[in-house]
Design a protein around this nucleic acid. Structure first.
Length: 512
RNA sequence: GAGGCCGUAGCUCAGCUGGUAGAGCAACAGACUUUUAAUCUGUGGGUCCUGGGUUCGAUCCCCAGCGGCCUCACCA
């Protein structure tokens, strides 16, 4: 049997049987006419008498229970908050026995007048109540909640029900994504879904997950990016498209990387890098402003919108800082990025091997990541880094008159790469060449250049000039909810399995 | 992949120099009609992550493994 060795389970099971003996289904069904805990609290006014005014019916999980004899105070929690329920023997005479059966973790409904206690606590004085669902296992500690990180990730349902901050993060995540959809809808973007299983994993530089289709007997890859499909839609005349969905990258896991992560990618015909910069800045500033307002943070005297992140404040006030890649390179690496000889020398000095055989732009990229990028961590303001070495950007339009540069920016906030945008490459000749040319010193999966003939054919049919943008949604949520680990904003982050039989996510609660 | 830290009751955590484990909450029995993490009295509850080793004796020391967190490497 389930949990047959667990004494706690057995005690709760005996309570369940008492409910059944009284004619109550312990795993009940639909409940009508409910209002939320916060709505019920709002029914209370300064004129409301102690023993209550308006009748309300609420339901939720019992998170606190104080039985003081002929009176029981229960705090129930739903996803809008908490409300105290008062159960008095004198008002519930016939059902008092059942009131005494309620215990922590049970889900129950109560209806009665909303009043308050002598200490002023808003209280629904129950006239009727019922069990909605019996809980057979004890909830986490009522005061400290569930603190063990591993349990919080493996048994997220306990984290959500015991830790209100965690629930708040995920409700906020949903609101953020909804705001993004509304923002893009106002700008006439349409949302689409493109394949997550792809024959050629394109659009980014990352190792893909492989899978296999049995009936067709073909290997497929989980997508690392939707880019090449979204751009095909531009060719087809869908002038403003976006997708918010998962990408999969078979790489290391840390506080900023989960193997599956959510990305928003959009493409806008007849726009360009500058258009993407304006869109990004407007979108992020408005999201930050909304978050700032919902946190009830005091308005700064200078009108700036600052949100706490870790041990600092990030200033989302427009305009964001803009720094040219070449200037950052010169400043932090110490040589001009166009000076091939100096770059080689410098690379060798920093322990990079095979300098002579490695492509110039790749060396520049390595030095930049090593010496310049870390300095962006120190900034308390979002910063657009723009005009990347062309060799690193095989899907990006070259800068007019400066073919060694690509019209690309990356947006860094608090040391995280949050967004990446291009003026899209629509020249099929250049695209064919960058797909073909393996940059010296790079493995194929690191180069972003995998030949996709159909994509080149699409470009031959003509893709309007366009701007493209990708925003890491998980990281954005991290920033806006002040979480420094991506696992705190992904509902079910990938963890190692706990081994056959005993034990994965449900080790402590599954069949004995 | 490397290094550091961690794993003790359902939950949150103590545990000294190596001498077979404690608290709070939760549970169980009882008292209590205005509590706020209610309070009070009493009771039960342990594969000290797993497997080896050292030792008269290991939660503690050593080795290996499993899992988690952090830093780094790779990446977004």
């Amino acid at each position: 049997m389930l949990q047959s060795d667990n004494p706690e389970f057995k005690f709760r099971l005996s309570r369940l049987e008492k409910w059944q003996a009284a004619g109550t289904d312990p795993f009940g069904s639909r409940i009508e006419a409910l209002i939320s805990a916060s709505a019920a609290r709002e029914l209370h006014t300064s004129e409301t008498p102690h023993d209550g005014g308006t009748i309300a019916k609420v339901a939720g999980r019992i998170t606190l229970l104080r039985d003081i004899g002929k009176l029981i105070f229960i705090t129930i929690t739903d996803w809008t908050g908490k409300i105290q329920i008062g159960l008095a023997k004198q008002f519930l005479a016939a059902h008092w026995e059942q009131a005494k059966l309620l215990e922590l973790g049970d889900i129950a409904w109560f209806s009665g007048k909303v009043g308050h206690t002598k200490t002023g606590e808003i209280t629904l004085w129950a006239e009727q109540f019922g069990l909605a669902c019996k809980s057979l296992l004890p909830p986490p500690e009522k005061f400290h909640g569930l603190a063990d990180t591993e349990s919080r990730y493996r048994q997220r349902y306990l984290d959500l029900s015991a830790n209100s901050e965690s629930l708040d993060v995920f409700l906020t995540r949903s609101r953020i994504i909804q705001s993004i959809r509304e923002f893009l809808s106002k700008r006439q973007f349409v949302e689409v879904e493109t394949p997550m299983m792809q024959a050629i994993p394109g659009g980014a530089a990352a190792r893909p997950f492989m899978t296999h289709h049995n009936a067709l007997d073909i290997d497929l890859y989980m997508r690392i990016s939707p880019e090449l499909f979204l751009k095909r839609l531009l060719v087809g005349g869908m002038e403003r498209v976006y997708e918010i969905n998962r990408n999969f990258r078979n790489e290391g896991i840390d506080t900023r990387h989960n193997p599956e992560f959510t990305m928003m990618e959009l493409y806008q015909a007849y726009s360009d890098l500058a258009g993407m910069m304006e869109l990004t800045e407007t979108l992020l500033a408005s999201l930050a402003e909304a978050r700032h307002a919902s946190l009830n943070l005091p308005a700064a005297a200078d009108g700036k919108i600052k949100l706490p992140y870790g041990d600092r404040l990030i200033d989302f006030t427009r305009p964001f800082q803009r720094l040219a890649y070449s200037e950052l390179f010169l400043q932090h690496v110490g040589v001009a990025m166009t000076d091939a000889q100096a770059v080689q020398q410098c690379a060798a000095q920093h322990g990079i091997t095979d300098v002579a055989k490695t492509d110039h732009d790749v060396l520049v990229g390595m030095l930049f990541e090593r010496l310049a990028e870390p300095r962006l961590n120190d900034l308390d303001q979002p910063v657009f880094v723009y005009d990347y070495p062309a060799g690193l950007c095989p899907l990006t339009r070259r800068k007019t008159g400066q073919p060694h540069l690509a019209e690309r920016f990356e947006l860094y906030i608090a040391g995280m790469e949050l967004a990446n945008a291009y003026t899209e490459l629509n020249d099929p000749f250049v695209q064919h060449e960058t797909f073909s040319a393996q940059l010296a010193g790079l493995k194929e999966e690191d180069s972003m250049a995998r030949m996709d003939h159909d994509f080149v054919t699409a470009l031959c049919h003509g893709m309007p000039p366009a701007g493209g943008l990708g925003i890491g949604i998980d990281r954005l949520v991290m920033l806006l909810t002040n979480r420094t680990s991506i696992r705190d904003v992904v509902l079910f982050p990938l963890l190692k399995s706990r081994g056959a039989g005993a034990a994965d996510a449900h080790a402590s609660t599954d069949d004995a």
